[in-house]
Design a protein around this nucleic acid. Structure first.
Length: 275
DNA sequence: ATTGTCCCCTGCCCGC
DNA sequence: TGCGGGCAGGGGACAA
C-alpha cells in the first residue's frame, strides 16, 4: 500500500507528535508479520526511553530513541500507524501497541506484510534490510551517471527497474507508472535502452511526482486504503494521470489509457504519449 | 549476475 | 446468497 510519499506523510505526522514522549509499555497481540516482532528486545529496551527523532529510508520508518537504539518499521501493503486511538477501538489486526506516558502508537496491518524490528546499535543504515537499498530519489547521487551505470545493458522493463529498491528506494507500483507517464516513456522499455535524455526526463519526472504526492498527503485509492496517523486519507488519487485509469481517456491526448501486467503487477500507460 | 516465479496474509470485488 | 478466482499500493527466497 504505502510507497515513499505515504510513508513520508506518516513520518511528518509522527515528528509533530512523538518526540519527547516516553515509552512505558509494549503490547504485542500478534508477532508474526513478515518477520517475527522481536518482543523481548522491545520490552527490554523501550520502557523509560523517549523518542528522539523519526527518519525515513525508502519505505522504512526509523524511530530513534534518546538513549540509543532504533525501531525499524515497514508498513507492507496494508499497514497503518494510528496515534492515540480511543481505548474501545481495538481491531483484530492491531498487532502492536506502543504505550507512552501519554497516549499510544498502534500498528495495524491486516495482511501482515509489514515489519517491525529493533536495531540496537548506532548504525541503522547497516541493517540488512537497509544496507542494500539504493539512493533516495531526491538524493544527488541518484543522477544520470548513476542510472546509466546501474541500468547498463539491463533488459528489464524500466518500470521493474524503478520498483527495485536496490536501484532507487521507495518507488512502488503507483508512482512508477505515474513517473513514466510524466516522462513520456513506455513502462516495458528495457532499462538499458533508455537514452541519456530519457533518463534525465525520468529522474526529473520521478522527483516531481513524488514531491507533489507528498504535498498532497499521499494516495488513498479506496476507503480502506492508506490513512495517515489521524485516520485521514491522502489527496493524490485525484492527481493520478494513468494509475487505475484503464480505458479512460488520457489527460493529455484523450486516447484510452492501457493496462498491462509487468512482473505480475498492474501497469498503466498511454500508448500515444509514452514511447 | 540478472531475471522471473512463487510465496507470505487477509479482504474485497466480480462473475457464475 | 454463496462461492471460487483474481487482484491489491511490498519484498524476500529461490531457481533458472
Amino acid at each position: 500500500m504505502p510507497e515513499l510519499p505515504e510513508v513520508e506523510t506518516v513520518r511528518r505526522g509522527l515528528i509533530q507528535i512523538l518526540p519527547g514522549r516516553r515509552f512505558v509499555d509494549v503490547k504485542i497481540r500478534q508477532n508474526r508479520l513478515r518477520k517475527e516482532i522481536p518482543a523481548s528486545a522491545l520490552r527490554k529496551h523501550l520502557p523509560g526511553q523517549t523518542v528522539k527523532d523519526i527518519r525515513r529510508r525508502g519505505k522504512y520508518l526509523l524511530i530513534g530513541l534518546s538513549q540509543g537504539g532504533t525501531i525499524l518499521l515497514h508498513l507492507g501493503m496494508s499497514g497503518v500507524l494510528i496515534i492515540d486511538p480511543p481505548e474501545n477501538d481495538l481491531y483484530q489486526h492491531d498487532h502492536l501497541l506502543f504505550i507512552f506516558d501519554r497516549g499510544e502508537l498502534r500498528f495495524r496491518d491486516p495482511r501482515r506484510f509489514g515489519l517491525v524490528d529493533w536495531i540496537s546499535d548506532g548504525h541503522p543504515e547497516q541493517h540488512p534490510l537497509l544496507a542494500s537499498l539504493g539512493p533516495e530519489p531526491d538524493d544527488p547521487e541518484f543522477n544520470l551517471e548513476y542510472c546509466l551505470r546501474r541500468a547498463f545493458s539491463s533488459s528489464r522493463p524500466i518500470k521493474n527497474w524503478l520498483m527495485d529498491g536496490r536501484f532507487v528506494a521507495g518507488v512502488g507500483n503507483i508512482y512508477a507508472s505515474e513517473a513514466l507517464f510524466a516522462a513520456g516513456i513506455r513502462p516495458d522499455r528495457p532499462a538499458g535502452n533508455l537514452t541519456a535524455g530519457e533518463w534525465k526526463r525520468l529522474i526529473h519526472a520521478l522527483r516531481g511526482v513524488l514531491k507533489e504526492a507528498i504535498e498532497q498527503g499521499g494516495t488513498t485509492l479506496k476507503d480502506r486504503g492508506f490513512k495517515d496517523l489521524l485516520g485521514k486519507g491522502g489527496r493524490f488519487q485525484h492527481h493520478l494521470r494513468v494509475y487505475g485509469r484503464a480505458g479512460e481517456p488520457c489527460t493529455a491526448c484523450n486516447d484510452p489509457v492501457q493496462k498491462v501486467m509487468l512482473a505480475g503487477r498492474s501497469t498503466f500507460y498511454c500508448p500515444a504519449c509514452q514511447k
